[in-house]
Simulated scan of single mutants.
Amino acid sequence: MRDWLKPASAAEAAREAAGLEWLRAAPGGVRVVRVLEVSRDGLRLERVEPARPDAAAARACGAALARTHAAGAPGWGAPPPGATGEGFLGATVLPTPEEPPSAWGVFYAEHRVLPYLRLAVDAGALDTAGARVVERCADRLAEGALEADQPALVGDGVARLHGDLWSGNLLWTAVEGRAEAVLIDPAAHGGHAETDLAMLALFGAPHLAELLAGYQEVSPLAAGWQQRVGLHQLHPLLVHAALFGGGYGAQAVAAARRWA
């Protein structure tokens, strides 16, 4: 494969490279784009030649993603080893807790939902009433009312997340005549495994039902996971509301209202 340069600041490039290598280190996990060079100009990466995925490739990807998650992380919001500075999700800073929060709900409320709610309100994407709905949801998260078990392979631990797993960051390439998934552009951190799956569902991914079936075969999801998809989508919806406005603010309020 040929290589390609992804422009970034030196700090951003180093952080992303650390995330890619952390994901790559997961035994049996999803294939990750290879970092060829980290420089002040950005990241030089292998070029992924595209292929069309099919149901079998999606099912294999789901199984591999379950193993990536199961590789674990030392705490909620934990960055990749050796990573310095903040991560990024789109054009927004992805804060790293100074101390690992005690539970997922605390992490998600204080380090994902509320910071981006403030940005979305400042951007005019949510009004006062909508912001109150999201705040009530955040209160319930922080109180522990919305905790849920991780998938079976993760167990009582913290999952190793890609962190920005929309379909544009899940590429497909041909390997020996078959399609294989390749991850790019992570915002890698420790979190709840359902977050990555909810992100795939937010903007759609090819053969998503097969991908989820492959995941479930390897690492069954906790009961009620389908109902929690909107809860895990709340953070990226707030990010999009802050960046793009439009209907994302209303979608975020609708997602929060069910849990508020």
Rank of each mutant, 00 (worst) to 15 (best):
L114P: 01
W166P: 00
S167G: 01
E135P: 03
L141F: 08
S102N: 02
G130M: 10
V182I: 05
L171P: 02
A131R: 09
L183I: 09
H189A: 12
H111M: 03
R132Y: 00
A138V: 08
V154A: 09
H111G: 05
D196F: 06
L141Y: 10
A120T: 12
V175T: 03
L170I: 00
V134A: 03
V182L: 00
A179D: 00
D196Y: 06
L153C: 02
A181N: 06
A179F: 02
A138Q: 12
V175P: 00
P186R: 10
G124C: 02
A193G: 14
V121Q: 15
D127L: 07
G130N: 07
V134Q: 11
V175D: 07
D156L: 12
R160A: 12
A152C: 02
L183K: 08
A179E: 03
V158P: 03
G105L: 08
H162I: 09
W104T: 09
V133H: 13
T128Q: 09
Y108W: 12
S167V: 06
G105S: 14
C137I: 11
V113Q: 12
V182K: 01
A125R: 09
V158I: 14
L146V: 08
W172Q: 04
R178K: 10
G168Q: 06
L161I: 01
L171D: 01
R118M: 07
T173L: 00
